[in-house]
Nucleic acid binder design. Structure first.
Length: 414
RNA sequence: GUGAGUGUAGCUCAAGGGUAGAGCGCCGGACUGUGGCUCCGGAUGUUGGGGGUUCGAAUCCCCUCACUCACCCCA
């Protein structure tokens, strides 16, 4: 048997109900906040992510599905959506054509990682992005919208963590301060941290090695090294969040793995999901549009992991069941049954029929298993009277209905 | 990329060298035109794959693949 490729998975009918719930709520909320949907290709030029996501990130260094196509073009399956959306924003001059440059997209991403709970090589994200607005009120609105999405889905036991990673003006000073504070403790840290010290010192805060914690806990905090502009911005964001009565915690240890973030970053975690607990994460990326060849515009957004939202979704039993089963009694009446089924479907009823001329009993069994509310029985006796029998499964009650009245009768019964 | 655990029927799992099983589900019958409950009957497996040890391997050994969880990283 040929099976799925590693890290890929089928989303089966039994799961689709939950997926559709997530997607429907997501679209509805995006609409309320003024976002317009767009879709960008799954395949982009490799350089888009090298420049956009960042050369030093794990995503670019080891997780991209990158290859040369038959024309020799270096392309890659998108590992994240933001660079593609920025490209589309610039390429189509959306700044001019959209009254508000708020965009969202929904679709698959690809990262070559070792799969585990909540992490797959093909996974799906909801991305929202806003261009051209640098004000802290937008940061707060984006964060508040993310929280609204999560709670609208009925997901509880979550925490919102926010941070500020500063800007190109103040971040170098903070990195330097970190290394200085580390001083001779650096060799005592784990191997990963030693590497981080040279590549991206902020990442040292990501360390989970217990032995490192006393040292990491003693390091300076990013808040204390923000420039005046960044500090003011971060305080304003928090002010708005308080005005929204939106609980949050400030963490100096929240470091996002993408190079382009500036100032505000945030993450919503589920407390009951296991190791891959980030439901959604995002932040501001004020330099990215320009970096990718566009005008110098601010940017902010987040990505929500649909698999993880589905995983965190509360149980519910609102499965969509068919309405009616049309049972033909006897070979001669099958044609009449199919014709009736067409009429029921034209009336908007979810209608099942049997294709294998089974016994009445077998058809009833199927109808019961399918969960229909009513069975329409088409047999010699009722056809002779110009009727069919309608049986209500829940009560077992049944009665004759004129053939040409069945659709209306069932529509009003449901 | 690293580590650990697990692979047996559609699903959940037994059998730890001697003929591959149960429950659930599925199909049929009891009830020749009526579901659920009950009873009876039936189908289904290259025991993940390959190699080895053995008279004999689901079982022991090696390799490989997949899945799961964790590290890493992130949605």
């Amino acid at each position: 048997m040929i099976s799925t490729v590693r890290g890929m998975r089928d989303i089966l009918p039994a799961d689709m109900e939950r997926w559709q719930r997530v997607e429907t709520v997501a679209r509805q909320i995006c609409g309320c906040y003024g976002y317009r949907e767009l879709r960008t290709p799954l395949i982009e030029r490799e350089e888009l992510f090298v420049k956009g996501t960042g050369e030093s990130t794990d995503i670019v260094q080891k997780e991209m599905y990158a290859f040369a196509d038959k024309g020799g073009e270096r392309v890659t399956l998108r590992p994240e959506a933001t660079p593609g959306i920025v490209r589309a924003f610039v390429e189509h001059g959306l700044e001019q054509s959209l009254s508000v440059p708020k965009l969202f997209t929904l679709g698959p991403m690809f990262r070559y990682e070792r799969p585990q709970k909540g992490r797959y090589r093909q996974f799906h994200q909801l991305n929202i992005e806003v261009f051209g607005v640098g004000d802290a009120s937008l940061d707060a609105e984006v964060i508040e919208m993310a929280c609204t999405l999560v709670s609208a889905l009925g997901i509880d036991e979550t925490e919102l963590v926010i941070s500020s990673v500063g800007c190109p003006v103040c971040r170098p000073a903070f990195s330097e301060a970190l290394l200085k504070a580390l001083g001779e403790d650096l060799p005592k840290l784990c191997g990963d941290c030693q590497r981080r010290a040279t590549s991206n010192p902020l990442r040292i805060f990501d360390c989970k090695v217990p032995a490192d914690q006393p040292i990491v806990d003693g390091l300076p905090h990013s808040e204390d090294y923000l420039c005046d502009a960044c500090r003011g911005h971060f305080e304003a964001v928090q002010g708005y969040l308080r005005a929204y009565d939106q609980p949050f915690q400030v963490s100096h240890r929240l470091v996002r793995g993408l190079d382009y973030y500036t100032r505000t970053t945030f993450e919503i975690r589920s407390l009951k999901l296991g190791a891959q607990n980030a439901l959604l994460g995002g932040g501001r990326y004020d330099g990215l549009v320009k970096e990718l060849g566009g005008p110098d515009r601010a940017g902010i957004g987040f990505a929500a992991g649909l698999e993880r939202l589905v995983l965190a979704l509360p149980e519910s039993d609102d499965a969509v069941l068919p309405d009616v089963f049309v049972a033909a009694i006897g070979e001669a009446n099958r044609e009449a049954a199919f014709v009736l089924a067409r009429a029921l479907r034209a009336g908007g009823l979810r209608t099942l029929v049997d294709y294998e001329a089974r016994s009445a009993k077998a058809q009833m069994k199927r109808a019961n298993r399918a969960g229909v509310r009513h069975v329409v029985i088409v047999g010699d006796d009722e056809l002779a009277r110009g009727e069919v029998t309608v049986k209500t499964m829940a009560t077992g009650e049944q009665h004759g209905v004129a053939r040409d009245r069945v659709v209306d009768s069932l529509l009003s019964a449901l």
